[in-house]
Write a protein that binds this DNA or RNA. Structure first.
Lengths: 175, 175
DNA sequence: CCGAAGTGGGTGCAAAATCAACTATGTGTG
DNA sequence: CACACATAGTTGATTTTGCACCCACTTCGG
């Protein structure tokens, strides 16, 4: 469902192969979504079925043929409809919070390890996002599209930063 | 996978029926996980299969029989093993960020609507969490279990608060 | 020259999650 | 009395996701 819209969104920016879509999910989109290769190719096929995208096979000299997927007018409409239908509400889901919730089954130092391990991972993720952020041309963010894309990265940065602060607070006051 | 551990965690606190588990997911656990009724009952059956829980049917005078699920020693071990195996890393997943990422397909005022709608929903969720937080006896949070449980709620509160701040920033600077 | 990594695409399978019914009975409200 | 809601649990179908493979060819590093 969501994946199909995200793919439509990417195809809206420019025609792409499944392979290129995967790379986007692993880089520019990774701070708010991820997707398995197999899932991408299958969803792509569904989009073509529904008439939201068309395929154009482009032969290359040295590399395999590109199955270039182009968004159709119907596809663009479906995307806009999703965006116009209002802000989606998705339930919170964080397995790590589950670990914390029941962590009392562990000894105090093991709990501390758990939190410190998470702290390190969060710091690592935050640093990754911050370096991605540096790569963004701030003059380009004057146009609305770039601004919004950069904003989602800012969101991820704020979330990670908030998590770090929380972890430090918990580590400090843990009885 | 995660759901099975969370159920084990809850059964660790006290024996419960599927119905009661569902209520916990809808109330005390809702800030970091949710689960469908059907999924809970099926997972419960799996836990019994694996020997992580046992069922005791308790007849009631006016109401249907309770299928009380008790955690076994093996179940407790499985839970502890999950907690000891280290902090789980789960990829970020936020459909709303997808909407923002591609929101440039909309007009400026529609984008503003989208963000304001989300702002309201976030405020509502935050208020809910804050009122849950009020219900927590702070003296009880001196023991480690209560402290950790309250901490996960604090985490959710911080996340929602950070989201609000972000939304305000985006609304202010949106070109 | 060998092997690793990159380009490009795909299948099969299983687990996890969601949606929508359906079964009973009891209790409280208008 | 009818109706909604709470207690308690179950079934079927479908979608979503994740993991592990498989193909073919090219380019680059040592």
């Amino acid at each position: 469902m969501v994946l199909a819209r995200l793919i439509l969104g990417l195809l809206c920016l420019s025609p792409m192969t499944g392979y290129e879509l995967k790379k986007h999910f692993d880089s520019s989109i990774n701070h708010f979504w991820n997707a398995d290769k197999a899932q991408i190719y299958r969803t792509l096929a569904q989009l073509v079925d529904k008439g939201y995208a068309t395929v154009r096979t482009v032969a290359q000299s040295n590399y395999p043929d590109r199955q270039e997927h182009h968004i159709t007018e119907a596809g663009r409409e479906a995307l806009v409809q999703w965006l116009s239908a209002g802000a989606v509400q998705s339930p919170e889901r964080d397995p790590f919070m589950g670990q914390v919730f029941f962590a009392a089954e562990l000894e105090r130092d093991e709990i501390q390890n758990l939190l410190e391990e998470r702290r390190q991972a969060t710091q690592y993720t935050l640093d990754d996002y911050l370096s991605q952020r540096e790569g963004i041309d701030m003059r380009a963010a004057a146009d609305r599209r770039s601004f919004l894309m950069a904003a989602t990265l800012d969101h991820a940065i704020r979330q990670q930063a908030a998590e770090l602060e929380w972890l430090d607070a918990v580590l400090e006051y843990l009885p």
